[in-house]
């Protein structure tokens, strides 16, 4: 059981790391889609079927497409998708910060007295989940709905606002 998890985790982390270091922006986004699919596979492995499919639908089906669209909208020419590398020092500092955070978190995880695992996954059907969402968590559901609406309206205002472009301004 643990071998499956280790393989999944290594594949997911590998795609994420490569995606973050690639020059070509579109390749990065497509590889990150694989990362998100790997996380969905992890949810499936853990027995959270609904979350896995929701993750696939939202990340692979919607977020990745929106990001790809943004990549295509914000470039001058076809070769513009190759993001220029940042300064070397910046990369070194970033790697140091990432390594430090990973070290602290890993040390905490391995030293913490964590409770042992139950043998079986807590059985939760979709119907039960729906009841929980509309019952005990109804207020948070409402808050998330308001947040999504506000975010959507805000995004439209941000992206569509601004003065009309001058004809000669387009690249």
């Amino acid at each position: 059981m643990n071998t499956v998890l280790v393989i999944l985790a290594l594949a997911t982390l590998g795609t994420a790391a490569v995606a973050m270091s690639l020059r070509n922006l579109l390749h990065s986004v497509l590889l990150l889609t694989a990362t998100w699919a790997g996380v969905a596979a992890f949810y499936l492995w853990a027995g959270a079927e609904f979350v896995a499919f929701a993750q696939l639908l939202v990340y692979v089906g919607a977020i990745s497409m929106a990001v790809l669209f943004a990549v295509l909208l914000t470039r001058h020419s076809r070769d513009d998708v190759a993001a220029p590398p940042a300064a070397r020092s910046r990369g070194v500092y970033a790697a140091a910060a990432g390594a430090a955070v990973a070290g602290v978190l890993l040390a905490a995880v391995s030293l913490a007295p964590l409770a042992t695992a139950p043998a079986r996954a807590p059985a939760v059907s979709v119907r039960q989940l729906g009841g929980e969402l509309m019952g005990a968590h109804a207020a948070s559901l409402l808050a998330v709905a308001v947040l999504l609406t506000v975010a959507l309206v805000g995004a439209v205002v941000l992206a569509a606002g601004g003065p009309p472009e001058k004809p000669g301004d387009t690249p």
Binding site: L30, T33, A37, F53, A54, L56, L57, V60, G61, A62, S64, M65
Partner: peptide, 8 residues
């Protein structure tokens, strides 16, 4: 979910 991946 599987169908939305085809669009990619």
């Amino acid at each position: 979910a599987a169908g939305s991946a085809t669009e990619l």
